[in-house]
């Protein structure tokens, strides 16, 4: 006998699940489909003829797009990798035996993450001001630099300044997640390792890192999504000037100047980049579950 598609219990659950599914479809699927249709449309408001791949061809021939993709990759690569390792290092430091007031350290470090995006961007913009900014003042007082660094007004420095702020803002999240993960690790594993004569590096490599794999995946995925979609920080600090335009800013700029179809094509491209990471993550999780 053929197995029914849904069990009796699953059928009963449909009315309860349906409102949530409908709301999700309305809020997520509809805008996605609409953007996709607009990206293939001649008219910016998506009500005109089919434009084929014209918008995409124009997109790939736009020097701004090429630079935005390159900036997005640089920005994402640096912020994700450094934030992850810095956050992990902070977590290990706080988790060490002998460290007092762990809760207070965690809370203090976590403040950077909970401050609203525009507020922290505005504060850092002041700190990075070329003349009279606190960062330059501090570095000059410590004799680390001889003259003021044009942090936000030079293409050579602006990206670095933005990456510093993003790392400052997101590393505490990794720290918090990793600290929670570290607290869950069974102490008997480390005791056994001690009996087997394992050193600190061995314990890190064979116990800590494998046991924190799930938390690390979540942290990395979140860092990637935040980096790819980050808008407020870059917009507030440089408005995309000094070669800091990423895909998010390019989409906004195109929308602002009425290139709605072009903006939609850019958004689809950004979605594709995010989807690559999302699919990788999902596959890894499914693989883990099967094992």
């Amino acid at each position: 006998m053929r197995k029914p598609l849904l069990t009796k219990d699953e059928k009963k659950a449909i009315p309860f699940v349906l409102p949530g599914v409908l709301v999700t479809a309305l809020l997520i699927v509809y805008p996605l489909v609409y953007i996709f249709v607009m990206s293939f449309s001649e008219n910016g408001v998506g009500q005109s003829g089919f434009a084929g791949f014209t918008n995409y061809i124009r997109l790939f021939h736009n020097p701004q797009f090429t630079r935005a993709v390159s900036n997005t990759l640089i920005w994402t690569g640096y912020t994700v990798v450094i934030s992850f390792f810095l956050g992990f290092a902070m977590a290990l430091l706080i988790h060490m035996k002998g460290i007092r007031l762990k809760g207070i350290w965690r809370s203090l470090l976590f403040i950077a993450w909970i401050i609203p995006g525009v507020v922290k961007a505005t504060a850092w913009k002041w700190l990075f001001t070329t003349d009279g900014g606190m960062v330059n003042h501090l570095l000059m007082s410590l004799k680390l630099i001889s003259g003021p660094v044009p942090w936000l007004t030079s293409p050579a420095w602006a990206k670095t300044a933005l990456i510093i702020v993003q790392i400052w803002a997101t590393a505490p999240y990794v720290m918090l997640m990793m600290t929670a993960g570290l607290q869950q690790l069974p102490a008997d594993l480390y005791e056994s390792a001690d009996l087997d004569g394992a050193n600190g590096f061995d314990k890190m490599l064979h116990i800590t890192l494998p046991m924190l794999k799930d938390v690390s995946f979540i942290c990395l995925l979140m860092l990637l999504v935040w980096a790819i979609n980050e808008f407020a920080l870059i917009w507030t600090m440089t408005s995309g000037g000094q070669n800091t335009t990423t895909l998010s800013l390019l989409i906004y700029n195109q929308f602002k100047v009425l290139n709605l179809n072009f903006a939609s094509a850019s958004a689809v491209m950004q979605l594709c980049v995010s989807m690559i990471f999302a699919v990788l993550y999902t596959r890894l999780v499914l693989k883990e579950e099967k094992q």
Binding site: Q64, P155, A156, G240, G241, Q242, N253, N259, F262
Partner: peptide, 15 residues
């Protein structure tokens, strides 16, 4: 679309 390109190169020249 042209304006951001011009702005970017002004910044390169000034810096």
């Amino acid at each position: 679309e042209m304006e951001p390109i011009i702005y970017e190169y002004i910044q390169y020249a000034v810096s």
